[in-house]
């Protein structure tokens, strides 16, 4: 089987090819292929005789596959799990990119940020009512929850199940000392952690949950028109954003083409083919919401991946979120 040769123990979720050219660049990436496909198509059109193979896998599998030793065929690793990506670079699995690329946001000239996924909170107006307009900040939300006697259900990523959830929780803790108060209040009502963004959104749309905390905005946007009750909250204290990053693994056999692809993705043209929500330019977005706090590409992220840090986190997490269990 083809995929067996790519990496030891990798179980791909999808395997897509864009274009028919003989010069093929192979990408190992997370997320749904659909959102990056227009960019890959643009890249294929821009050159002659190019094609892109996109192998989709979960971020954890990608991390394990890279550590286990990738096949030379993988030219580019693209992932939204910025902490894992940073750790791979820190542990020496990347290689230096071109000077052109290092002018964009990067770490060590090896890991390049090519998209930003803003994080928002989703509410069901029908369930919360007119009070929704008061929920401008996390502190306001906590206060509102405190005085809300009617029980309501909230959902968020389960940090145990979801790497993104864990990452966002740790980032919230770094930004905001009231994070545990928020968990307390949510726990006081009813907190239903979920593994994946799809379920969280579905719950809010269906009215099962009144609120989904920390949802990836780009997943929500397509739903807004079909679900008029659903509304996005952008807190004005701060707004997190997860960078999507890419690097060329050490030993990739078509480094030049991979560089071209990466350069294309961060170029104006490549960015224009991305959904407006996730373009790098989103940082400068002027509509309501607090200061954008994209997670920095910093080796400090590896600390949170340490089992010691995880254990310490979950010790508190379990206490605070336990009440409803």
């Amino acid at each position: 089987m083809f995929t067996a040769t790519l990496a030891h123990g990798l179980t791909p979720e999808g395997n897509f090819v864009v274009g028919q050219g003989n010069q093929q660049v192979t990408v190992l990436g997370t997320g749904d292929f659909a959102r990056i496909q227009p960019v890959l198509a643009g890249f294929v059109q821009n050159g002659s005789d190019r094609s892109v193979r996109y192998i989709q896998a979960s971020s954890r599998e990608i991390d394990q596959a890279v550590r286990a030793g990738l096949s030379e065929e993988i030219d580019l690793v693209m992932s939204s799990a910025v902490d894992l990506q940073v750790r791979l670079i820190n542990d020496g699995f990347g290689q230096s990119l071109s000077d052109e690329l290092t002018s964009s946001t990067n770490w060590r000239g090896e890991l390049v940020q090519w998209a930003l996924e803003p994080i928002v909170t989703l509410v069901n107006r029908r369930l919360i009512g007119e009070d929704v307009d008061q929920l401008r900040s996390r502190a306001a939300l906590i206060q509102w929850l405190k005085h809300q006697n009617k029980a309501l259900t909230a959902t968020l990523y389960d940090p145990r199940e979801s790497g993104v959830g864990y990452l966002l929780s740790q980032q919230d803790l770094l930004q905001d000392t009231q994070f545990w108060d928020l968990i307390d209040q949510l726990g006081r009502h009813q907190l239903r952690p979920n593994c994946c963004s799809g379920e969280m959104i579905d719950q809010v749309v269906s009215g099962e949950s009144a609120l989904a905390y920390n949802v990836i905005e780009s997943y929500v946007t397509p739903l807004l028109e079909v679900a008029p009750d659903v509304q996005i909250l952008r807190f004005n204290d701060y707004q997190l954003a997860i960078p999507r990053t890419g690097f060329i693994p050490r030993g990739a056999d078509d480094r030049d083409l991979a560089l071209e692809l990466l350069s294309y993705v961060v170029s104006d043209e490549g960015q224009s083919r991305l959904s407006p929500t996730v373009r790098l330019a989103v940082l400068n977005r002027s509509n309501a919401g607090g200061p954008m706090k994209p997670i920095r590409l910093s080796p400090a992220l590896i600390v949170h991946l340490d089992p010691v840090a995880r254990d310490a986190f979950f010790k508190v997490w379990d206490q605070r979120s336990q009440r409803t269990r």
Binding site: W107, P299, V303, A312
Partner: peptide, 25 residues
């Protein structure tokens, strides 16, 4: 024993130079 891995301290170190960081306890 228990101990912390202080994210902020590592962050300061990360800011000092674009270098790889290792630790062990």
């Amino acid at each position: 024993i228990d101990f912390d891995l202080p994210y902020q301290a590592f962050e300061v170190l990360a800011y000092s130079a674009p270098e790889r960081i290792f630790y062990r306890v």
